[in-house]
Write a protein that binds this DNA or RNA. Structure first.
Length: 329
DNA sequence: CACCAGGACGGCG
DNA sequence: CGCCGTCATGGT
C-alpha cells in the first residue's frame, strides 16, 4: 500500500499503447513471408526500419523500441480488448521454444531432416500469426499460381478500393458483403486478379450468405472444416490447408506447395519409381506421421528456409538490408 | 522472351 | 481415382 503519490510518471512503465514482442521476434520471416500480405516495410520516425500493417480495424506499427520489437496501435486508443487481440494476433501466449524443441525431437532421428535443425534455429524468430479467416481465405485463393509480391499488391488494392477507411491512410480488408457486391469485371480490371475474378465473387457471395455457419466453423473439428472449405470456389487442397493454418490456427494443417514438396521429397518420402515426385497424399501422410500436431509449424519452417535459400530479390526498396535494426540481440 | 509462381478446375482414359 | 491442358498476370 503506497500512500505517497508520485508527482511524475514512472519512466519504467511500458508504453501503454504498445505491446512488446518476444526478444527473438523476426519481422521479416513473420510479417513479410508467405503467411501475411498486408505488411509493408518503411522507416519509422527515427529513420529505422519498421513494419506497418493492418489487422482488422487496427493500423499497427512494429518498430524497435526499448531494446526490442514493439507493436504500436496508430489509429485507436489501446483499450485492453484491443491489446488482448494483438497478443492473440502475434500468438504471444504460445511457448515457441517448447514447440520448437518438441519438433526437433521429432526430426533429429531422421538424418535428412536432422541437418535442418541448425536452419530451424536460425529461423527461430518465425511465428504463426492468428489472422482473420475471411481475409486469409481470399488471400490464398488469389495465391494460386501467383507470386508473393503480386499477392500482396492485389490484397492491398482490394482493401484500398472496397475496405473501410481507418483514419490513418490505411484501409481494412472488406467484409464478405462488401466484396460480394463487386462485379467480377471490376476485380479483374482494377485489382488485376486475372482469371480468379469469378472465384472471388462467388466465394464472397457464398460466405456472405452462409455467414452464421462459417462464423461457427472455428469450433468444428479440423477434418470437417477442411472438407467444408474445399467446397468453396477456388479452394483446393493447398488453399484449404493454408486457411486452416493461418486463418483457423489449426497447427495440424500442412500446406504442400512446390517448395515444401521439394523439401519433403527424398527427405521423408521417397520419389516414385519413375523418379517423379511422390503424390501429395503421401507427403501429407508422412508429415502427419512425423510432425503430428506440429505439422503446420514444421511446414512454415520448411517453406521459409527453402525460400530464404533462394532470395530472388523480393525487396522493392534496394539499399539497406544489412542494417536490419535488430534491437540489441 | 520463355519460364515461373504458396493451384484449382474441368475433361478424359 | 490419376493425369493433363488451361487459366491471367507480372517479375526474372
Amino acid at each position: 500500500m503506497k500512500t505517497a503519490v508520485s508527482q511524475r510518471p514512472s519512466l519504467i512503465l511500458a508504453q501503454p499503447d504498445a505491446i512488446a514482442l518476444p526478444a527473438d521476434f523476426d519481422p521479416d520471416l513473420t510479417l513479410r513471408g508467405g503467411q501475411a500480405f498486408r505488411w509493408t516495410v518503411e522507416p519509422d520516425s527515427n529513420g529505422q526500419t519498421a513494419y506497418r500493417g493492418v489487422v482488422e480495424d487496427m493500423t499497427l506499427l512494429v518498430a524497435p523500441a526499448a531494446g526490442q520489437w514493439q507493436a504500436r496501435l496508430l489509429n485507436h486508443p489501446p483499450t485492453p480488448p484491443r491489446l488482448a487481440r494483438l497478443r492473440d494476433y502475434f500468438d504471444l501466449d504460445r511457448d515457441y521454444a517448447a514447440a520448437r524443441q518438441a519438433l526437433l525431437e521429432r526430426v533429429e532421428r531422421v538424418a535428412p531432416l536432422a541437418r535442418l535443425s541448425g536452419e530451424i534455429e536460425r529461423a527461430r524468430g518465425l511465428r504463426i500469426l492468428r489472422q482473420p479467416w475471411f481475409e486469409t481465405l481470399v488471400a490464398f485463393v488469389i495465391s494460386a499460381n501467383n507470386h508473393l509480391p503480386r499477392i500482396r499488391q492485389i490484397i492491398n488494392v482490394i482493401s484500398l478500393k472496397f475496405g473501410q477507411p481507418l483514419g490513418s491512410g490505411d484501409y481494412a480488408f472488406p467484409t464478405p458483403e462488401a466484396l460480394a457486391a463487386v462485379a467480377p469485371a471490376t476485380l479483374r480490371g482494377e485489382c488485376r486478379v486475372g482469371y480468379r475474378d469469378r472465384y472471388l465473387c462467388q466465394l464472397a457471395q457464398r460466405i456472405a450468405r452462409e455467414r452464421l455457419a462459417w462464423e461457427q466453423a472455428a469450433t468444428r473439428p479440423t477434418l470437417e472444416l477442411r472438407q467444408a472449405l474445399q467446397t468453396l470456389p477456388g479452394v483446393g487442397p493447398k488453399v484449404a490447408e493454408c486457411v486452416l493454418l493461418f486463418g483457423f490456427h489449426r497447427w495440424e494443417a500442412f500446406p504442400i506447395d512446390v517448395w515444401v514438396r521439394r523439401a519433403m521429397t527424398g527427405a521423408l518420402v521417397a520419389p516414385a519409381p519413375d523418379g517423379r515426385p511422390p503424390a501429395d497424399r503421401q507427403i501429407a501422410a508422412a508429415a502427419a506421421a512425423r510432425f503430428g500436431p506440429l505439422a503446420g509449424l514444421a511446414q512454415q519452417y520448411l517453406f521459409e528456409i527453402a525460400r530464404r535459400h533462394k532470395p530472388k530479390a523480393d525487396n522493392a526498396s534496394a539499399g539497406d538490408n544489412r542494417s536490419s535494426p535488430r534491437p540489441r540481440a
